[in-house]
Write a protein that binds this DNA or RNA. Structure first.
Length: 399
DNA sequence: TCTTGCGGGTAAA
DNA sequence: TTTACCCGCAAGA
């Protein structure tokens, strides 16, 4: 859906709008933040995201570490479950995993994130084309409960320091989010390849999965599917309940549940309400039926009733990269985009370009040759236009 | 002590 | 070539 991002890029730029900071991004979403946003400056995330070297000095890539849980799956005294934030540092994390569950003293277990085609969900950060903003792109749907947020972890640490003889740790949020699923359900929940996590009703069964963001109908203008996250297209727009915490962050406007939002041809979305149009376009069914799902307060979701075999059969017959409803001209942009680019990290003697940091600060169309491959955060080609001073190399090693 | 970001390097697809 | 991931380093909280 690079093209849809591209189009949204222009809208955002034109409208000079920014998103309120999203701490719990989930799904294939993208946000543009004001440069004044401290959380965005710190590349903050509620998820435990570690830095990943993508050999691209302009794009910071982070991948999710998952969540640390009790290996026995015990229930804390308050009825909640332990969901610790994995330490970011490898050594610290190893040390962390040697610790025991504060409740049942069983070993702790790290549930790795496998929400992006079997790999951890990734977040990409980069300075926006506008000098006063940055943007974040998330790829993948977290297939595990939320860990403690960073602020919670820090608060707990400082609390532990203050109170040497403190009672056993009970994460604050776990008090608020009793886990209603059984272990069997967890098994299902933790492996997204068994079910669709874009299933709108899913959060009703797993409160810890609640994301503050609106999920958008998994189809988009180009019909580009996430690499292998090929889930059956769900034509419905759905969103989770507003979070009961981090209200300061979650000031997203109320998202209109209209079929327009599901129509890739509609260009009338309020910009500050567009997060991302995601999705595997599987066949033609997804774009044609765009009935919006209401905020579901009841749930009929049952993994048992959605056998994977059915999904896979659907996937087999799907054509994820077809683009129903996409204006031909827009597709042409991609197919004709010149793939010549300069290496922004290359020494001046090779490229004649400034170094990475200065490039970010002084990015301008003149920094590149007349043929520029413009990519999104994940490295896909999104446009070949030149009016926007956005040097966007591949997310990975620019060579 | 831990987080964060950077970057060299390897391996697999 | 792309992507994931390992490792070490440095700066800073």
């Amino acid at each position: 859906n690079h093209l849809s991002w591209s189009r949204n890029d222009f809208k955002f730029i034109d409208m000079k709008q920014s998103d309120p900071f999203q701490e719990w991004t989930d799904g294939y979403v993208r946000y543009i933040y004001s440069a004044e946003d401290k959380n965005a400056q710190r590349h903050l995330s509620g998820w435990a995201m570690r830095n990943t070297n993508n050999h691209n000095c302009q794009i910071l890539k982070k991948s999710c570490l998952g969540v640390v849980v009790c290996s026995r799956g015990c229930t804390l005294p308050d009825g909640s479950r332990l969901q610790l934030r994995p330490a970011i540092c490898d050594k610290a994390r190893q040390k962390q995993q040697k610790k025991l569950c504060p409740s049942c003293h069983a070993a702790l277990e790290l549930l790795p994130c496998r929400g992006h085609s079997g790999y951890p969900v990734t977040n990409f950060w980069r300075v926006d084309g506008r000098p006063s903003s940055s943007r974040s792109t998330a790829k993948g749907v977290h297939d595990h409960p939320r860990p403690e947020s960073k602020s919670e972890t820090e608060a707990r640490r400082s609390s532990v320091k203050r109170r040497v003889s403190s009672p056993p740790f009970t994460p604050k949020r776990r008090l608020l989010e009793p886990q209603v699923h059984t272990n069997k359900q967890q098994q299902v929940c933790y492996h997204w390849d068994r079910i669709s996590f874009m299933e709108p009703n899913f959060p009703q069964h797993y409160p810890a999965f609640q994301s503050p963001e609106a999920y958008y109908n998994p189809h988009n203008e180009l019909g580009e599917a996430p690499p292998t996250l090929q889930k059956p297209a769900n034509p419905r727009l759905y969103m989770s309940r507003p979070s009961y915490e981090f209200q300061g962050y979650l000031t997203s406007p109320s998202y209109p549940v209209t079929s327009d939002l599901c129509d890739p041809r509609s260009a009338s979305y309020p910009l500050d309400q567009i997060l991302e149009v995601v999705a595997p376009v599987l066949g033609s069914s997804s774009s044609s039926s765009s009935s919006a799902a209401p905020l579901s307060s009841s749930s009929s979701f049952d993994p048992q009733t959605k056998p994977l075999a059915g999904w896979k059969e659907l996937l087999k017959s799907s054509t994820p990269y077809t683009t129903p409803g996409v204006p031909a001209a827009l597709q042409t942009i991609i197919t004709t985009t010149t793939k010549v680019r300069q290496d922004p990290c290359a020494p001046p003697k090779q490229s004649g370009l400034p170094g990475c940091s200065s490039l970010l600060e002084n990015a301008s169309p003149s920094s590149y040759s007349t043929e520029v491959k413009v990519t999104d955060e994940s490295g896909g080609v999104i446009k070949s236009l030149s009016f926007q001073p956005e040097p966007l190399p591949d997310q990975n090693r620019a060579s």
